[in-house]
């Protein structure tokens, strides 16, 4: 594996208290200008990978081995200040919940421009021009007025657009989107997903898309990693996954995803024997794993 903008190699993280592994030797390769879906059920560790890249893992977790390379530089070997500078300049996050991600007591404008001014050293004037530009890019009409409004005055879809604008404002090379549409209606979800994939294509951003919805993956991702229990059980491109997943767990997950065009196919939960098999795989991996910290 080489040439990815973001490359995660052999990353393991444990719970500080019990030593239990939460991420199990994760390998992920994200090419520039592509979208990789990170799929799994709740507790599979998909959000943890995004957090590990951004360096905001919960305190209860500790990375014990592996590399997170951004543009060839290993984040885990950098000093805190250098790592923050690199992340701040190259990476942005589109968070899950647009209501809690915006500060309710500040106007929209400064919430977009402050990051550019305080962290990236832009002038206030340049930042404001850029903010107007990206707000128009996410199809917000009357952007100048919206910049003076407060979050509560806007709908959920509008707020999510603002967070997307804010993520793209500094032209990041890498964006991590953590279930950005789960709080939205289907109709709004479609608009937002189209918007994200258009902007991503236009700017050539590498996008890591965390989701539990295989339908969404089919619509916008290029490749995907299926996680179970913090382990990547399948790593493939979208076309071959939906033509027939290689791993039994991937197949079961796809069978559990509803399709409205095929009403007679019954909806199957992931069978117990598949779960048992994938757990056994994890147990085997843990037995062979030697801690290197």
């Amino acid at each position: 594996m080489s040439g990815g903008y973001l490359t995660i190699r052999n990353l393991s993280a444990v719970l500080r208290d019990t030593g239990e592994r939460v991420l199990r030797s994760v390998d992920i390769d994200l090419q520039p200008g592509t979208i990789r879906g990170l799929v799994g059920e709740s507790g599979a560790g998909k959000s943890m990978i995004g957090k590990a890249v951004l360096g905001v893992l919960p305190k209860a977790l500790k990375v014990v081995e592996g590399e997170i390379l951004i543009d060839g530089q290993d984040l885990l070997k950098l000093k805190d200040a250098d790592r923050r500078r690199l992340i701040g300049a190259s990476t942005a996050l589109i968070p899950q919940d647009p209501l809690t991600a915006l500060n309710p007591s500040h106007r929209i404008g400064p919430q977009i421009t402050n990051r550019l001014v305080d962290i990236l050293g832009w002038t206030r004037r340049a930042a404001e021009v850029r903010a107007l530009e990206v707000l128009e890019e996410v199809q917000i009409a009357d952007a100048a007025r919206v910049m003076r409004q407060y979050p509560h005055e806007l709908s959920g879809g509008m707020r999510q657009r603002i967070l997307i604008a804010s993520a793209f404002a500094a032209e990041p090379k890498l964006i991590i989107a953590d279930e950005p549409t789960t709080a939205l209606d289907v109709t709004v979800q479609k608009q937002i997903l189209k918007l994200i994939s258009n902007l991503q294509a236009r700017h050539g951003t590498a996008l890591l898309f965390v989701t539990h919805d295989l339908g969404v993956v089919a619509k916008i991702c290029d490749s995907l990693s299926v996680l179970y229990g913090g382990k990547v059980v399948e790593d493939t491109d979208v076309a071959s996954f939906f033509n027939g997943p290689h791993h039994a767990y991937g197949r079961a997950l796809l069978a559990a995803t509803p399709r409205h065009t095929d009403p007679d196919a019954s909806l199957l939960p992931v069978p117990d024997d598949v779960i048992a098999a994938v757990r056994a795989e994890l147990g085997e991996a843990d037995r062979q794993w030697v801690r290197h910290d």
């Binding site: 289907v186 479609k190 619509k219």
Partner: peptide
Amino acid sequence: SIPEPDPSQRW
């Protein structure tokens, strides 16, 4: 707007 798990029709 339903995202069908079918990559042949992309958004």
